[in-house]
Amino acid sequence: MSPATKPGTVYGVGLGPGDPDLLSVRADRLVRDAKHIAFFRKAGRPGQARTLAHGLLPENATEHPMEYPVTTEIPLSDPRYNEMLSSFYTDCTKRLRTLTDAGEDVVVLCEGDPFFYGSFMHLYTRLRDDVPTHVVPAITGMSGAWTATGAPITWGDDILTVLMGTLDKETLTARMQDADALVVMKIGRNIDKVRQALKAAGKYEAAWLVEYATMPNQTVQKLSEAEGKVTPYFSIIVVHGQGRRP
C-alpha cells in the first residue's frame, strides 16, 4: 500500500437466520453497495451465505469465494483439522489484505451473526490489529428457530444453554441436565447422538426440531415425531424453559 492510499475496510456483515426481510438496514445497505463480496463455501457448492444474499448483490460486484479445505472429512479431534483450517484462514486473510491495501472495501457475508460461532471470527482476529474491520450484528439462527415454535425460549430466571451437536455424548448429557432452556446447533450427522443425550437428560419429549428457520422450506415439529429423519446441517433443536412468570 502506498503512503497516499487510504486502507480499505473489511465488513463482516451478518445476514440473519435466512429471511432477507430480517436483515438490518445497515447490512442491507452494505451488501447492496458492495464492490467486493467475499463468502465461505464448501467446494462445489454455492455457499449458504451467498445463497442468502442472492438478489441483493450489485451486478458489477466482484465475488471472492473462500472454499474450505475440509468440513466433515476429517474428525475434529485429528490435529490435521486445526492445522488445515488455520492455514486456510491465514490465506483468506492475505487475500482480503491485498484488496484493503489497494484501498478497496470488502463485505464478507456471514450467516446469522458474525460473532456467534461464525467463520468470520477467525478472519477478524487475524485482521483487527492491522486492517479497519467492522462487524454488523444480526439476528441469530437460534432466535429464528425458537420464534418459529411459537413459544418463548426463556421465562423469569431460566438459564439458556447453547450446545454444539459435535460435542461428545457425555458432555451433551451433562450440560442438558443442568439447563432450563436449551438450544442445540450443528445437528446434521450428529442427530442420533443428540437424541440419546436428550433422552438421558430427560428432555427428549420436550424437544422441538426446526429446520431452515425463517426460510421458505422451514419445518417445525416435535423431535419425537421425527424419528429416523436425516436432518440438514442447518437445523436446530429447541427445549423451552418453564421458569418463573407472573
Rank of each mutant, 00 (worst) to 15 (best):
V135I: 11
Y117P: 01
M142Q: 14
W146T: 12
S143G: 05
F116V: 15
Y117C: 02
V136C: 02
D129M: 03
H122G: 00
L109V: 14
S119P: 00
V106C: 11
R128M: 10
L109F: 06
D129W: 01
D113I: 08
G112K: 07
Y124G: 00
T125P: 06
S119V: 07
V131P: 00
C110N: 13
H122S: 03
F115R: 05
G141S: 15
L127A: 10
H122L: 08
V108D: 09
G112M: 11
L123F: 05
D113W: 06
P132G: 08
T147W: 02
G118F: 01
G112L: 09
D129P: 01
M121F: 01
M121R: 08
V107D: 04
L109I: 15
L123W: 09
T147A: 14
W146R: 01
L123R: 15
D113Y: 03
Y117A: 04
Y117H: 06
M142S: 13
T133W: 12
V106P: 10
F115T: 11
S119G: 03
H122P: 05
R128C: 08
V107L: 05
F120E: 14
M121D: 07
M121C: 08
G144E: 05
C110D: 14
L127P: 10
V107S: 00
F120T: 12
A145K: 11
W146E: 12
R128A: 10
Y117K: 00
G112T: 09
G141Y: 02
D113N: 09
S143H: 05
I139D: 07
T140K: 13
L127E: 11
P132N: 03
G141A: 15
G141E: 00
A145R: 12
G144T: 08
R126I: 05
S143M: 14
H122D: 07
L127V: 13
S119E: 06
P137C: 01
Y117Q: 01
L123P: 11
R126N: 10
V136T: 11
H134W: 07
H134I: 07
E111V: 13
T133D: 07
L127K: 13
V135E: 03
D129N: 06
T125N: 13
T140M: 12
A145Y: 04
Y124M: 09
F115M: 14
P114Y: 03
V107I: 13
V107A: 10
L123N: 12
W146A: 03
E111Q: 04
H122R: 10
V108M: 14
T140L: 09
V106R: 11
T147K: 14
W146D: 08
P137T: 05
P114W: 06
P137Q: 01
V108H: 02
Y124F: 10
G144Y: 06
G141Q: 07
G112W: 09
V107P: 02
S119L: 04
G144K: 05
D113K: 04
V135G: 01
R128E: 11
V107E: 09
L109K: 14
V136Q: 02
H122A: 06
G141M: 15
V106F: 10
V108E: 10
V131D: 02
S143E: 15
I139F: 07
V135N: 00
S143D: 13
T140Q: 10
M121H: 03
F120N: 08
F116L: 15
R126D: 02
P114E: 07
D130T: 14
Y124S: 07
A138E: 09
S119D: 03
V108L: 15
T140P: 13
G141P: 01
V135Q: 05
L109T: 15
V106H: 12
T133R: 11
P137V: 08
M142K: 10
